[in-house]
Amino acid sequence: MYLYGASGHGKVVAEIAEENGYHINAYIDGDVLKKKMLGYPVLHKPPQENIDIVISIGNNRIRKNIVDENTLFNYVTLLHPNSSLSKRIRVEEGTVVMSGVSINAAVTVGKHCIINTNSSIDHDCVLEDFVHISPNAALAGSVYVGEGTHVGIGANIIQGIKIGKWCTIGAGTVIISDVPDGSTVVGNPGRIVKITEL
């Protein structure tokens, strides 16, 4: 297995891979100054072959670009053994679920998502592709999160909310009403401070 991205996030992903018994061949990273991380070599371009890979980069947009440019990779899903996952969830390829995460029944998590440390996702939530749920964020039941949205650390989203695509939910924000595509939302209660056209 290869990890695409040799940064702090890549260290955490590597340890989840190790916990799951994967052999890590190397990191892949475009920064030519990076030579090794956690004892693993850093390559500066992917091998010319069909490889097992996890994208270990926190930025949602960058993960999407890598997937769009590398259609032959076999994307692996990593689930930390110290997460609490209902047997009735669906987690798509390339997604990483970190330690302490709780995901309850009937949740769907899309491709290449990050469900970060100690976050909580309750029943019947849907997360589209390339979503990042930050540490200690909490989603109540039946929340919908659109593609590419980043939910910041410690944010809280009440039940039944729909959050659009490519939104940014600030750290500690409390979401009590639906959020349109491209919105940046902060505060308690959450208020839209910017909308970026998609």
Rank of each mutant, 00 (worst) to 15 (best):
A6C: 15
A6S: 13
S7Y: 00
H9P: 02
K11E: 13
A14K: 13
E15N: 15
A17T: 14
A17L: 10
G21E: 07
A26T: 14
I28P: 03
D31F: 03
L33A: 15
K35C: 09
K36L: 08
M37N: 02
G39H: 07
G39T: 07
Y40N: 07
P41E: 14
K45Q: 15
Q48M: 13
Q48S: 15
N50A: 15
I51W: 03
I53E: 02
I55A: 02
S56T: 05
N59F: 03
R61V: 11
I62W: 00
K64M: 11
K64P: 00
I66L: 00
I66W: 01
N70C: 06
L72V: 13
F73L: 12
F73E: 02
T77R: 14
L78S: 13
L78E: 11
L78V: 13
P81S: 14
L85F: 07
K87C: 05
K87L: 08
R88F: 12
R90F: 08
M98T: 12
G100S: 12
S102G: 10
N104W: 08
A105M: 07
T108L: 12
V109L: 10
V109H: 05
K111W: 03
H112D: 01
H112Q: 05
I115Y: 01
N116K: 11
T117N: 07
T117W: 05
T117K: 09
N118T: 14
S119F: 08
D122L: 11
H123N: 11
V126N: 07
N136H: 13
A137D: 07
A137L: 03
A138I: 13
G141T: 14
S142R: 09
E147R: 04
G148Q: 02
H150M: 06
V151N: 05
I153E: 08
G154Y: 10
N156C: 13
N156P: 00
I158M: 03
I158N: 00
G160T: 03
K162D: 04
I163W: 00
I163E: 02
G164R: 03
G164F: 02
T168G: 07
G170T: 12
G172W: 05
G172C: 12
V174L: 14
I176A: 04
S177K: 15
V179T: 04
D181W: 05
G182K: 01
S183H: 04
V186H: 04
P189W: 01
G190E: 06
R191A: 11
V193S: 06
K194T: 06
K194L: 10
I195S: 08
T196W: 00
E197S: 12
